[in-house]
Design a binder for these strands. Structure first.
Lengths: 220, 220
DNA sequence: CCCAACCTGACACCGGGCTGAACGCCAGCG
DNA sequence: CGCTGGCGTTCAGCCCGGTGTCAGGTTGGG
């Protein structure tokens, strides 16, 4: 599943992201409603985890607005312990479920699993990339020479690039995605993975911008 | 589909009946195991929704007895949230799926839809998997060297994979299917079953994606 | 031409996955 | 009541492939 996490707390956000990524979900983590809106307009998510207290506005208003605009992606609300009214209002505003902070990561997994099962009917969205057809949920790529299999890290990189097709993604962003904040990896790991991806997908899919980062080629 | 609902709670029973009838399924609602047995002997149902706490006995014993008698109709168990052992025992006794009360009616529909798809239309849909012909309803596999018999857990795993042929199924999904949500099983049970399945079905049917999960091979 | 950035083949380590074997549990049976 | 066989689970050791690092080569900008 492709999940959008909207959470401004650094520690909690990282923990949640690691947890759900560890379960094989493609995860994007944003920290403001503005970024959340942009991400949702760009990528078709299967689930949104939404904190209600954010620096640039109230999550509830955001949710209500999105629902009003016809957005149907399931939303699970993350709310502080005593904000019961928020919870009720959240369900009224169109949330599918809620979790009370501090919550157990296992509980989070269970809720996500429930949502996944509930909406498992709809077919997985297929993304076209050059000659390839990519199914993010099934983690499968079909190409002219049959299936292509990627490793975990390779998926992370590719998903990160697919998130902004044609746009430039700085190398630092990819590093952050792979290694959380703390890990100080002083090496050319990203370059190695880019190389491996190109070897599997062929050149021309990923192009380099010296000193800036990488981008997906739009060319067929 | 023709569905038998076994539930003694008036409110819940009525709600469920209305829901599934509203979706075009023929529904019979009984409130005791005695009536359920009678109904099943009289009418060929496509699906049974079975509450485990009933006035005249334990649903589990009933289920086990029916399975022992060769009954193959798919059964979805309805169980209370804290009866974990019941859920596990339910799968052991031959249930096809379970729902935790209180459950969402939409979720119920999804499960019914899944069963409907799995056992669609024709009495015994044969699924082809490599050199094998699989009959899910009869829980039998015919292969080049004659019949292959699987244990219950092995069936659960295989069915889970068959639901998304060719797609990646994370190990966590298989664990959830076997052990409900909460069971903290810190072991390699899944790997053991995968190993046993491969031993029975031959290598090449189930392929591994390190750190991600398993998938059914499409190769003949 | 020089240097920085990048590419890529090679390689060692390590942790996840595989599997044979043993154990516990339960049901059936004499 | 003990025996037995089937099944689920755990454990230990091996294997293997993903991952990160490095070195040497290549590219591109100044």
């Amino acid at each position: 599943m492709r999940i959008l996490l909207v959470e401004d707390d650094q520690g909690l956000g990282a923990a949640v992201r690691d947890q759900i990524m560890g379960e094989g979900h493609a995860t994007d983590w944003v920290q403001t409603l503005a970024d959340a809106g942009h991400a949702m307009r760009t990528v078709p998510y299967d689930l949104v985890l939404l904190d209600l207290m954010l620096p640039d506005g109230r999550g509830l208003d955001f949710l209500r607005a999105r629902r009003g605009a016809g957005e149907v992606t399931p939303v699970i609300i993350l709310t502080a312990r005593d904000q019961i009214t928020d919870r009720i209002a959240g369900l009224n505003a169109g949330a599918d479920d809620y979790l009370v902070k501090p919550f157990d990561l296992a509980e989070l997994s269970a809720r996500i699993g429930a949502v996944a099962r509930r909406y498992s009917g709809n077919p997985n969205p297929q993304i076209d990339l050059g000659p390839y057809s990519i199914d993010l949920a099934a983690k499968s790529i079909f190409g002219p020479q049959g299936d292509v299999t990627l490793t975990q890290r390779e998926w992370v990189i590719l998903e990160c690039l697919l998130q902004r097709p044609g746009q430039l993604v700085p190398k630092s962003a990819l590093e952050e995605r792979l290694y959380a904040f703390d890990a100080e990896v002083e090496s050319n790991t990203i370059e190695v993975y880019i190389s491996r991806l190109r070897k599997k997908l062929g050149a021309g899919i990923i192009e380099t911008q010296r000193g800036l980062g990488y981008r997906l080629g739009l060319a067929a």
